[in-house]
Computed example of a mutant assay.
Amino acid sequence: MSKAEPEITVPHPRETTALFGHHDAEQTLLGAYSGGRIPHAWLISGPQGIGKATLAYRMARFVLAHRDPASTQVQSAETLDLDPEHSVVHQVAAEAHGGLLEIHRTANDKGVLRTVITVDDVRETVGFYGSTAAVDGWRVCIVDTVDELNTNAANALLKVLEEPPLRSLFLLVTHAQARVLPTIQSRCRKLPLRALAAADVLSAAALATGRDESDPELREVADASEGSVSRAVNLLGGGALKLHQRTASLLNTLPHVDPRELHALGDALGTSDRVALAAFTDSVDRWIGERLRADEGGLNANLPRLARLAEVWEKIGKAARETESYNLERKPLVFSVFSLLAEATR
């Protein structure tokens, strides 16, 4: 049984005011808002853990703080940055701003986090945008992530996007644009984000964890993170980094699998080590995400394989969330993941 690594708690994107990298994407949002013709919905896409939600909350705070795009503050702004002591910053961090609606997975009546975003969560937008007593001016809705919407929830969101209320702004976050309904995509301005440079990962991870950028372990995980801050943080602790490398090595042998190696990997995950489980699922997410992004563009896209991988990714994501939520045995998850991926890649 593996020894559990201590968990590292990092601030939620709603509490994070700093943004590393993504200067061009930030300027796109700022330019659209200051120009007075901002699209009502944006689909912010890219690999997991690179700052998509951080950018979304940064934009939301700016709009809620500066309700008039023609104001001097907006027209002279060079970034979406706000003073950390601004009242909107504190209200958003405390989930107490009446002009912001956050749609994400919620807990069920037993206090367990659901594996998907439900239609009831999305239906909150009806009351939110229909309210006149909340906050004058803009109302902003962040969906983090669209990938986790179940079918009914996705269709409910589509209906709202089809007839957007006045002065409404939707910021939809996705780790894989290919998994988003084409009808939702068609109603959004697409804003793709790239993986971060290692130096940006290092700075962001240092700020999130309170470590110094000269920390050798932090530098090692930043180099191994492939542009993802969340991956770097998940890999902190030598055991997690080694498990990530071990999982990546086995994934690269697909569609062939060695049962003995899978047994060993399941043992390495332990029974209740959340850090190890995060490293495993992150490695799988990255592997599938890379293949989806490679296939989703270009004239030679392998559409059948793309569809199979997208379907398998959804199944794996749900199984991984259930394993974490209910603290289930890890080894069955390992065998299930590799079985699904082997079938999808044959």
Rank of each mutant, 00 (worst) to 15 (best):
N252I: 11
L101C: 05
V116G: 02
V74H: 05
Q245V: 01
T281E: 15
E78W: 11
T72M: 12
A206C: 05
I8Y: 09
V160A: 12
R346V: 07
A4M: 04
T145N: 10
K52W: 01
P84H: 11
V89T: 08
D267L: 06
I288W: 10
I142T: 06
A206H: 03
G298R: 03
A307H: 15
H256I: 14
R274F: 07
R330K: 05
D109K: 00
T115N: 01
T115F: 01
D285Q: 13
H104T: 14
L171G: 08
V160Y: 08
A268T: 00
N108S: 08
H175W: 09
H175A: 13
G266V: 00
G237W: 07
S230M: 12
S45Q: 05
N108D: 14
S186T: 06
D215H: 03
R321Y: 07
P11T: 06
D24K: 13
S325R: 08
E78T: 13
L341W: 01
L262I: 03
H66W: 08
L100G: 02
E213C: 02
E26Y: 00
S186D: 09
T79E: 07
S2W: 02
A32D: 03
L55K: 08
E102V: 07
R123W: 07
A25Y: 01
A222R: 04
S203Q: 15
T106I: 01
E162P: 06
G46S: 02
A278L: 11
H104R: 13
T118M: 10
E311K: 15
A310K: 11
S214E: 07
E324D: 13
H256D: 14
P259D: 11
K159E: 08
I44S: 09
L250V: 00
A199Y: 00
R219V: 02
S45N: 06
E85R: 10
A307N: 12
T253S: 15
K110G: 00
